[in-house]
Amino acid sequence: MRPFDYQAPADAGTAVAAVAARPDAAFLGGGTNLVDHLRLGVTEPGLLVDVTGLLPNGISDDGGGLRIGAGVANADLAADPRVRRHYPVLARALLSGASGQLRNMATTGGNPLQRTRCLYFQDVTTPCNKRSPGSGCAAIGGATRQHAILGASEHCIATHPSDMAVALSALDAQVEVLGPDGERTLAFGELHRLPGDAPERDTVLEHGELITAIVLPPLPVAARSDYRKVRDRASYAFALVSVAAALEITDATITDARIAFGGVAHTPWRAHRAEQALRGATPSDETFHAAAQAELADARPQDGVDGGNAFKIPLLTRTLAGTLRDLARQEA
């Protein structure tokens, strides 16, 4: 492992200045992804700036919604009574990720910025455009079970691994960022980017930009919401596919819906077309399948030495239908 310096500044401004000043510097959150990458040689920073002590680590009421400090641990966020009550999809997404120990360590700011679990990205002996731009993509034609069916490019077919981010996408969260040029707020849906011809960039954040908080808007539809994750083991495994969904039903008609998919794209995938197909419709299995079909019409599965990932299309269709069926049965 390449040697690095370590700093734990007292305030966010100093941390941002320290990272911005060095191209090879990185923020250190809970370290559950970054420390693994240091050990694998996936990234070789010369300076780590620990932000866990300086980021806000409380959850406060905010105009009917919630402001979550970027230092809040995933486990603490999932246990918050307001999250469990008003945003169950977020609590359930957090709880379905990683393990009890990892959720105690992982932070609100670090989780959405965790990098892909693509096997080849993590194996420095193989070509990977994300890790080493221009080197090629070993996943294409390799083992693609974990890879994308939506929004991929010829340069990268990786998926985003976070469960939490899928819920935040469905909830229309906002991200507060402090950078060398000051503060800015962006919609969570704008944070992650599709790979295109620059898969080395997972997000729109510039070097030195620090996530300081995530804000959940007041969202009555989220009271009836859930997260469902399908994986190779019952627990402690990343999603093959997952669904975050919220449903509002008035007089036997779907009046509002929020849907996002995990495990299928380079970003958490907000399913606007599925939402549109649901609004105004009667909740039924036909409606739910039609919604999945509307979103997955453009899906492009990958062949692979492991059998590829075409299974994700029917699997995601059924996972969405099952999640919506259960939500529709719930008391509002």
Partner: peptide
Amino acid sequence: VRVLACLTLAVT
């Protein structure tokens, strides 16, 4: 709090 010592840098 239970954590993983392998992914924790001692310095932190």
